[in-house]
Write a protein that binds this DNA or RNA. Sequence first.
DNA 1: TTGTAGGCGTTATCAA
DNA 2: TTGATAACGCCTACAA
Lengths: 345, 345
Amino acid sequence: MSVTIKQIAEKAGVSRGTVDRVINNRGHVKPEIEERIQKIAVELGYRPNAAGKALAARKKSFIIGVILCARGNEFFDDILKGIKGAEQEASEFGIQVQVMTMKGYQVEEQLRLMDQLEEQIHFLILNPINDERIARKINDLSEKNIPVITVNTDIEGSQRLCYVGCDYLKSGRTACGILGIATDGKGQVGIAAGSVKILGHNQRIRGFFETQKNRFPDLRILDIIETEDDKETGYAQTLAMLKRHPSMDAVYIAAAAADGVCRAVADWQRQNMESPHPVKIVGSDLTPAITKLLKEEKILGTICQQPWTQGYQSVTLAVHYLVNGQKPDRQYFYMKNEIKIPENL
Amino acid sequence: MSVTIKQIAEKAGVSRGTVDRVINNRGHVKPEIEERIQKIAVELGYRPNAAGKALAARKKSFIIGVILCARGNEFFDDILKGIKGAEQEASEFGIQVQVMTMKGYQVEEQLRLMDQLEEQIHFLILNPINDERIARKINDLSEKNIPVITVNTDIEGSQRLCYVGCDYLKSGRTACGILGIATDGKGQVGIAAGSVKILGHNQRIRGFFETQKNRFPDLRILDIIETEDDKETGYAQTLAMLKRHPSMDAVYIAAAAADGVCRAVADWQRQNMESPHPVKIVGSDLTPAITKLLKEEKILGTICQQPWTQGYQSVTLAVHYLVNGQKPDRQYFYMKNEIKIPENL
DNA sequence: TTGTAGGCGTTATCAA
DNA sequence: TTGATAACGCCTACAA
């Protein structure tokens, strides 16, 4: 049976209160007694009981705030589900979760939401826009004792506790690995990014190049376009790219707008009567749209990033911080890059 | 803030004890009062607090027994780690976990271990040998109020509460999907199973055939051998198979003994000077041996089955049963079939 | 059939 | 600086 504070107190000949003060570094304990208690705790292998903590924590009633650029972006649905899942657990600690979503990536809007939440919350989970003003606001909150965790996208130059999300570099490498396998290392590849300015897409492309260089030297990357995460732009840009490079036989979609890209490929194949050949496509994430394309075998596979876990884990880390006062033990909580094909959906 | 038994008691004008009796169906409550309390509980959306339950459960001190055919099989290391992870959680409920491992698959040995544990435990997690005597023993234990969960392998004709483990059919389908992609749907495939008598390997092969038929009609399955999960047998059988079918250009390893198979392929490629061609290999699971083969690019990829989660989840389900008296809500807890290539290790 | 009281481990408050 | 006490939500033995 595991060791309790009570047992330590008995063994040390002090009250439970004193042991609690020592264990949680609350001060107000005579140094020699502190030392004795520490020693006994280690000796007995004391591990705090989470259930006890949970019960005691209910008297405090903290609130965790969440801001996501999720409106009109179905990719975030799974992140939201993960947050909902953790909310149940948080409520056992008397902790509430307040989620706000915004549409698009306006810095002003995000700053406004942060200001608004500031009064009510004790912790912030943020899907940040990579802008200096946001970074400053994060630091501002941190100083006011509202720690921040970034989720899904990270931001440079801020004091966020940690980042929970995709390892975009690895995601790009994995995509290249799959296209390398599919084309016997000889693919003529085009890349469709959302915007090369978006940090994540940029890193995916870097990762793709890295693996191309190291492992598939005969694979060629012919072109990179930007879809602006928009179907129609994606369609037009992809079609133009295919016309520029008639030998292209593979496409990596490092962003949303997979529908547009796939439609362009299909149309081009229909038009390009003189030298028809298949174009192998690898996508990113697993939205309903992508699932459909997978099942219809319009794309070969897709590289996913555990969105549910991103939501769940960020809340769990916040709960752990609020209940135990413990910071996350590392800066980066990277998700797995899961490869999905029709067979293992 | 979430609803507690106390709040329900106040609203219903009865004591907490009575509410507890109703909520947990302990009987000894006047029907009309029972009904009233039920109604209020639903109305208020009562959800029991796990922390409170955990604390109260500590007074009972249950023991969960685990039997695994894990000795000398490094695949089970991750399952054991998952069990260790859940043990921590279980100990907060005052529940202990007692693990026994055995080498090989002797029915007698497993029966002996089951007999031995029977006296001490309140729940059994079993990696069963698919034999009728084991099934009978499972039913025997169930009647003695020791429920059983099967892990990693299932058994027919028993009353185990549920199965936690790999969806072998899907695993085989996924392997075929990858080899289909890698060979442009035109591979000449050999399959290396451990033994076609092992249920899991058999299902993997069935899954592989299924996808071949439905999605890759031009892919041909030339031969199936049995490695008996032994390196040397695997080597010899594979070499013989390659000699029988010189056109073979892909191998699916549905079992352990990947080293032997890969060595045979390498040797054969060295010998077969007249018509050299690459042989693409897909494996199963992610043991240290397989990881090495992946990194050396001797195999293309491998299909994994979340062994850690198998261990963790089986214990969690047992804990949940013992603490809440609730049976798992389904018969099958299937793991994801994760595709691993060097880039997303 | 129903209510009361004490305890599970931890923490906060108040008194000494 | 330290100790005593009550509370968090749930369960159970015992009393009424």
